[in-house]
């Protein structure tokens, strides 16, 4: 309704309705074509530059909520790229757009030089996805889950069989090949999801919170597996809110806050900017953290103050906190 109380028509919704029935308006078709031409050009550029993932000015709006507000990322071949941020920062939205599960409002995404909107099938062949939620067929066996994946990716039966054995051995699940998925533990299911994502030999592996809900021992086993996959030449795009996970695994880290990348560098360089040591101490209005270049400086500072304190090394969380004023949770 306008100020005078007259009903107003939401043209964007009308256009969406027409698009649903295949009656695209000239305006929308023209805009889409223009956008696609530009993004294909960018993807061609990323092919020549040898960028494995190229994201340019990615924007995603959900009605009135701006989930992504212009994200730019370039991921190099063979690196582990961690995408770090608190819950609701837009990590999963980015992965969903990059893997074609969600439509971007604007911007472009290329995987190994293929545009995810324009060259959908080629782009989808380039990556494997391990989503946050376990999405295996629980009633089927480990082998059956993998066979279905192979068929979805147009693999030949002989190729599927040989890859299944090799990958199950790789993720240490070969003896579970004939077991129903529902009989596996949480960690085994995660490893099976990784094996499934690797079955068709993707160049890029997207891992969306791969260790969420797992106990520390299993988490470390998954980390070792991720490192092993990287040594095989696969590029890994990882989202996590576990600081130590990003610190241990990532070659480069992007901090995401409120839909924006606020910092992008190697974990070491992001932490270096603060110092090497930190003291957490209780103050009147909560906790204060002070950073120091050396341990000696930190200890000297503490002798001057008598409050309760903790001396520790600087971590990525400190860098994130320093940039955004928030903790990664």
């Amino acid at each position: 309704m306008d100020k005078k109380g007259n009903p107003q028509i939401d043209l964007s919704q009308s256009v969406d309705f027409l698009v649903f029935w295949g009656l695209k308006t000239d305006v929308k078709a023209f805009c889409n074509q223009n956008r696609r031409e530009k993004t294909v050009q960018l993807c061609n550029l990323s092919r020549t530059e040898k960028t494995m993932i190229r994201v340019n000015n990615l924007i995603k709006n959900y009605k009135k909520v701006e989930a992504l507000a212009g994200v730019d990322i370039h991921v190099k071949p063979g690196e582990i790229f961690a995408y770090l941020g608190p819950n609701g920062a837009g990590k999963t939205t980015t992965i969903r757009i990059l893997t074609g599960l969600t439509q971007a409002s604007s911007g472009s995404c290329c995987i190994n030089g293929f545009n995810i909107e324009k060259e959908v099938r080629q782009a989808k062949q380039q990556y494997g996805l391990v989503p946050q939620a376990i999405n295996l067929d629980q009633e089927l066996t480990v082998q059956e889950n993998l066979i279905i994946h192979g068929w979805l990716y147009r693999m030949k039966s002989s190729e599927i069989s040989s890859r299944i054995d090799a990958l199950l051995d790789y993720v240490e699940l070969l003896e579970k090949k004939k077991s129903q998925v529902k009989t596996l533990s949480g960690g085994m299911k995660r490893r099976l999801m990784v094996a499934r994502a690797l079955l068709h030999g993707p160049k890029v592996l997207f891992l969306d919170e791969p260790t969420v809900g797992l106990d520390p021992a299993i988490r470390r086993k998954i980390w070792a597996l991720i490192k092993k996959i990287q040594t095989g030449g696969t590029t890994i795009f990882l989202t996590t809110h576990y600081i130590e996970e990003a610190e241990f695994l990532a070659d480069r880290v992007a901090f995401l806050d409120q839909g924006r990348v606020v910092a992008l560098d190697s974990p070491e360089r992001l932490m270096e900017s603060l110092g090497a040591w930190a003291i957490d101490r209780l103050v009147e209005d909560g906790m204060e953290t002070v950073y120091f270049k050396t341990r000696n400086d930190a200890e000297r500072f503490n002798t001057l103050k008598s409050e309760q304190y903790t001396l520790r090394r600087v971590n990525l969380e400190d860098a994130f906190l320093d940039l955004t004023g928030k903790k990664v949770k």
């Binding site: 893997t99 080629q122 989808k124 996805l129 989503p131 067929d137 979805l152």
Partner: peptide, 13 residues
């Protein structure tokens, strides 16, 4: 419930 539809959506079919 099982979120398997995402596996189909992400695949090149």
């Amino acid at each position: 419930y099982w979120h398997i539809f995402e596996e189909f959506q992400a695949s090149p079919i």
